[in-house]
Design a binder for these strands. Structure first.
Length: 862
RNA sequence: GGGUGCUUAGCUCAGUGGUAGAGCGUCUCGUUUACACCGAGAAUGUCGGGGGUUCGAAACCCUCAGCGCCCA
């Protein structure tokens, strides 16, 4: 099909092109990577969204950046694999299905474990993974043939394999520890699944011991837990309590005698300087209890209801009990002061916001110290780079101080812990392809979801098998994700990746981006009502506009604000590009054959080729260093300012003349290259424009542009800069004089010979007619004089105002330059080229001042 | 308490030693044969305060103030 048969619609309607183009790409199999390929690999694994999730604006950003990288690398000739998939999201998914059951008045226990898990799978089949379809709308060039799910057979096998490997290396153990317990989800949580928030609580002073016996006053924010106290602790250096240490004091209501112990952990400044030690319900207390052999008394059941204290408080919810205990204490005259509200930090369940109960219980843990050390070293010695580098301290802060990781969850949805207990209390880890002996029963708990997602970079590639994919695509190239899951996920992949793959890091680079916030920079949340639905914006402005806006805001590691107006602005940009391409095609832009030799080109053509070359190398290197915002900025200004506002305007005259073969070829070339350069960010519109312009098969598999150093041409930059200055000044003059943009006026230039080739183009742009006239006004811009016939008078006041302003600016510049040149220190120490520059500036401003002054003097008096 | 970042035009943000920038918004003018989702022009900043280093600081150092995030 020849170019004349291909046409662009007169307006750009994103909805008309997006879905068909994505279909085309899928059918062509462009996104499917080949493990047998000779090309160098480039791999990104997607941060797996929750199976319960829908696409939010954060995904849109994350995916836009990954897709930009993958598309660029694919165009560069890499075997690019972007591997998609989802996470089974233990608690979140179980909650969804339990809620459904609750709607029918049932609980998971009514179904039983097996039936319930079946139900979850059924839910997944019917309503899980809504996000996958939405990824297609975003244009994600992921390899759907490799889509993975953390509960897939092979990924589950990877879980069993690593569990056994860790266990055999003594890196997994079972112990009774204080863990974070969610009384609503009824499961243990790891530290990072707990969110700390300040709440208005209370702080009360309570006296233990009866009058006449040993007495001591403690202060606490959790009075109800006094029933489980095993000791009272004071600082060993606190003189107030010196005599009491070692004595016993009677705990009210439970009437147990508990020791008063001394421990460094106690802050004498805090409260009364004496604290209660409730070993089974507080991590710090647990530590002290271990040191002093204090008994650990559990006083609540798994629902957070008081139990086993043998007091009147048994059966009360923990918060109810808090009130009741305080009331009773008050009645008994045991309360000193009470501070209420007392703001302090309290842990909440990340999934359901319930206040977490620290609780002594038997759980499985990963011993992280050696793993974390390896993970830290890999970054310290540069095997893994974190971009931007400023994020490294955060990473080290975490991996250097990581606590052992509680991995057991009292849930049904997830990978069941592969530990079997024998009739004599034997403990056996049953790996992949192994079977537990008869009479053994499996641990009922499942593993933390992050346990399986920590394996993602290699379990998705076929590990533990030594698969072709693993050989070709591991280690992955870059991990692109928000800094908010650096600890949840990224650090854990480092831990497990290095361990499982014998020290081979899971990725070469970790590229972190920020969060998307609302237009005022405020965090988005449902309660604030300021969330943005990416689908809505795609419907309204097109996917390319949304992607470009997000990429343009993506400074490494920094949050970005997003406003609807800005997406509209990107849509305008897309339309601009559409129209520029239409214009180019109408004017016979060609893509066939060699570019004409540089020597045969006019300065305008040389200039745009030079600018293109600069832009290509800048965008390329910015993209390679994850500077998405700056890359987009370069593209935007090249396309809109250089190409549309200047090149096309300055070339219109020659296109109209019908004799513009060279320029037609140059324009075709520039657009062809620009569309390639933009494709990673705006895949749909560029594909549509490029295939229409060039007749090529697809930009997805087209070659990435390479800057041509032969096109760099400084002299054309100089002349075009001068021309731009002349045009801008004349426009300003016309504007100040109230001459309509469309009005043609007689005008000409008196200029050095180097401007001669451009004079007609300049006159065309400025609507100046060449004719014989006696100038009634003129402007001097550098070495160029513009003369006009304004048929009589000019607006003297306007002209005086304009010149006066110019004069002020010039005088100020002159002053600045003079100050510098009169400064001996500057003359002595500043680099020569800076001195020359200032001297040139001085000369120019002096000339300007002289010229403007004389022009002002020659204006008729008012 | 530990870590970390920010404070630049009305808003959101770039800008790591040499005359302050962008997008959006604002004002004026304009339908000129790609585009009004457009074009042309304009206005707007003692770069948080104070001190220091330097010939020269928005940038480097110190300090104060305010805001934010992560962790405990």
């Amino acid at each position: 099909m020849s170019q004349s048969d291909r046409e662009l619609a007169s307006t750009f309607v994103p909805a008309d092109i997006e879905a068909p183009l994505y279909e085309k790409w899928m059918k062509a199999g462009y996104f499917t990577a080949d493990a047998k390929s000779e090309k160098p690999p480039y791999t990104i694994v997607i941060p797996p969204p929750n199976v319960t999730g829908v696409l939010h604006i954060g995904h849109a950003l994350d995916h836009t950046l990954q897709d930009a990288l993958i598309r660029m690398k694919r165009m560069k000739g890499f075997e690019a694999l972007w591997l998609p998939g989802m996470d089974h999201a233990g608690i979140a998914t179980q909650n969804v299905v339990e809620k459904q059951l609750a709607g029918q008045g049932k609980s998971r226990h009514d179904l039983g474990r097996e039936e319930f898990v079946k139900k979850v799978w059924q839910w997944k089949a019917e309503s899980g993974g809504a996000i996958l379809g939405q990824m297609k709308r975003l244009g994600d060039s992921v390899d759907w043939s490799r889509e993975a799910f953390t509960m897939d057979e092979n990924l589950s096998k990877a879980v069993l394999t690593i569990f056994k490997k860790l266990y055999d290396a003594d890196l997994i153990y079972r112990a009774e520890r204080i863990i974070n317990w969610c009384p609503r989800c009824l499961t243990a949580l790891s530290d990072i699944e707990v969110e700390h928030q300040d709440i208005d609580g209370e702080f009360v002073q309570i006296t233990y011991g009866d009058p006449g016996e040993t007495q001591i006053s403690i202060a606490t924010t959790r009075p109800e837990t006094m029933l489980g106290d095993g000791a009272v602790a004071v600082n060993p250096d606190d003189p107030r309590y010196k005599d009491l240490v070692g004595k016993q004091v009677k705990l009210p209501y439970v009437n147990r005698m508990i020791p008063i112990i001394a421990d460094e952990l106690v802050d004498p400044e805090f409260g009364t300087g004496a604290v209660k030690v409730t070993a089974a319900h507080d991590p710090n207390d647990f530590e002290m209890a271990m040191r002093h052999n204090v008994p650990m008394v559990v006083i609540m059941n798994e629902h957070g209801v008081m139990s086993g204290t043998n007091t009147q408080f048994d059966g009360m919810d923990r918060f109810e009990a808090r009130k009741a205990v305080v009331e009773q204490l008050r009645k008994d005259g045991r309360i000193g002061w009470e501070k209420r509200p007392y703001s302090h930090s309290v842990g909440h369940c990340q999934r359901c916001a319930t206040i977490v109960e620290p609780r002594l219980s038997l759980q499985w843990f990963v011993k992280v110290a050696p793993l974390a050390k390896a993970a830290a070293d890999a970054v310290r010695d540069g095997r893994v780079k974190i971009e931007p580098k400023e994020m490294e301290p955060r990473y080290f802060e975490w991996v250097d101080n990581m606590h052992d990781w509680c991995i057991s969850r009292q849930l049904w949805w997830g990978h069941r812990i592969p530990v079997w207990y024998g009739p004599q209390g034997e403990v056996l880890v049953v790996g992949a392809d192994e079977k537990a002996p008869d009479g053994y029963s499996q641990d009922p708990d499942v593993l933390d979801t992050w346990f399986s997602s920590a394996l993602w970079p290699f379990s998705t590639l076929g590990w533990p098998a030594d698969s072709d994919d693993l050989k070709k695509f591991y280690p992955t190239s870059v991990l692109v994700t928000g800094y908010d899951i650096l600890f949840f996920w990224v650090a854990r992949m480092m831990l497990f990746g290095l361990f499982a793959m014998d020290g081979k890091q899971p990725f070469h680079t970790i590229a972190l981006h920020g969060l998307v916030r609302d237009q005022f920079g405020k965090k988005m949340s449902k309660s604030r009502g300021n969330t943005i639905d990416p689908i809505e914006f795609m419907d309204k402005y097109g996917t390319d506009a949304l992607r470009f806006t997000l990429a343009r805001g993506a400074n490494p590691g920094k949050d970005q604000a997003l406003a609807e107006d800005w997406v509209g602005g990107s849509r305008n940009f897309a339309t601009k590009l559409w129209n520029a391409t239409r214009f180019a095609m109408m004017n016979g832009a060609t893509i066939d054959g060699e570019l004409p030799s540089t020597a045969s080109l006019n300065g305008i053509d040389k200039w745009i080729l030079s600018r293109l070359s600069e832009t290509i190398s800048e965008v390329d290197s910015l993209l390679e260093s994850y500077e998405f915002a700056r890359a987009c900025d370069r593209i935007y200004h090249f396309a809109w300012d250089d190409l549309c506002d200047w090149y096309l305007e300055l070339s219109k005259e020659s296109f109209a003349s019908g004799d513009a073969k060279n320029s037609q070829r140059v324009l075709g070339y520039v657009l062809d290259q620009l569309l390639r350069l933009m494709h990673p960010f705006m895949p749909f519109i560029t594909e549509q424009l490029w295939t229409t312009l060039t007749g090529g098969e697809s930009l997805v598999i087209a070659q990435w542009p390479v800057a041509n150093p032969d096109h760099l041409d400084q002299s054309s930059h100089k002349i075009i800069a001068n021309i731009q200055e002349v045009i801008t000044e004349v426009r300003r003059f016309r504007n100040d004089q109230g001459i309509k943009t469309s009005a043609k006026i007689p005008g000409r230039f008196v200029a050095p010979a180097e401007f001669a080739p451009y004079e007609s183009a300049m006159r065309f742009v400025l609507k100046l007619e060449a004719s014989d006239f006696t100038p009634s006004a003129n402007l001097q811009i550098g070495s160029v004089k513009a003369e006009f016939d304004l048929t009589g008078t000019i607006d003297v006041a306007a002209e005086r105002a304009r010149l006066t302003k110019d004069l002020a600016t010039a005088k100020k510049d002159l002053e600045t330059a003079n100050v510098k040149l009169n400064n001996q220190g500057f003359m002595a120490k500043a680099p020569a080229e800076v001195v020359v520059e200032i001297k040139e500036r001085l000369a120019k401003t002096s000339a300007d001042i002289e010229r403007i002054t004389s022009q002002l003097n020659s204006l008729p008096a008012q």
